[in-house]
Amino acid sequence: MDKFNTLTGIAAPMPLVNIDTDMIIPKQFLKTIKRSGLGKNLFDEMRFTQDGKEIPGFVLNQPAYRNAEILVAGDNFGCGSSREHAPWALLDFGIRCVISTSFADIFYNNCFKNGILPIVLPQEQVDALMEDARKGANARMTVDLEAQTVTTSDGQSFPFEVDPFRKHCLLNGLDDIGLTLEKVSAIDTFEKTAAQARPWV
């Protein structure tokens, strides 16, 4: 997993609420057995017509936002299925940070496993960031994970909360499984005790 420290980039505004994982990556692209290459199908049915032509009105098709690295989105982003293909597609497109008033639980977890930072902020702050994102490619937003701040192109700064353990993993690009395997003796002990207490499991 790539480290996440600071990111300065173009933010694309997607004010729609309840953007679900079927929108982010429709099911026909879940048939892959790889993690890579999904960026070209990110938001496929919103981004392209059935015969594969770009839909000009869609934000990521607009010249200003083709290289967006941040999404500012409506409430409850990433609801629906557990498909990790959603963060894989975002990452493959180049999105490293999503900002919203809330995220669906599984999507939120999946982001951290892939070096994407999901940021939760109150409505009025997301509204301010949405306005900033609407300014286009010349307005760069800055996300500083160490300092836990998002700063708009005109210098307005908002602090955000992030779980300390997840922050540590993201800053250092750490592999969860490696970390857990350091605790293998605790797992062994738990298994022995549980096998006594609940032998039917």
């Binding site: 557990s82 990790e84 599984i106 999946n110 969860d176 499984i177 970390l179 857990t180 293998v184 797992i187």
Partner: peptide
């Protein structure tokens, strides 16, 4: 509850979840 694929790998390897 549901988990993502990275967590599937984590559970396969460790039988635990963070």
């Amino acid at each position: 509850h549901g988990i993502g694929t990275s967590e599937v790998e984590h559970v396969l390897a460790t039988q635990t979840l963070i």
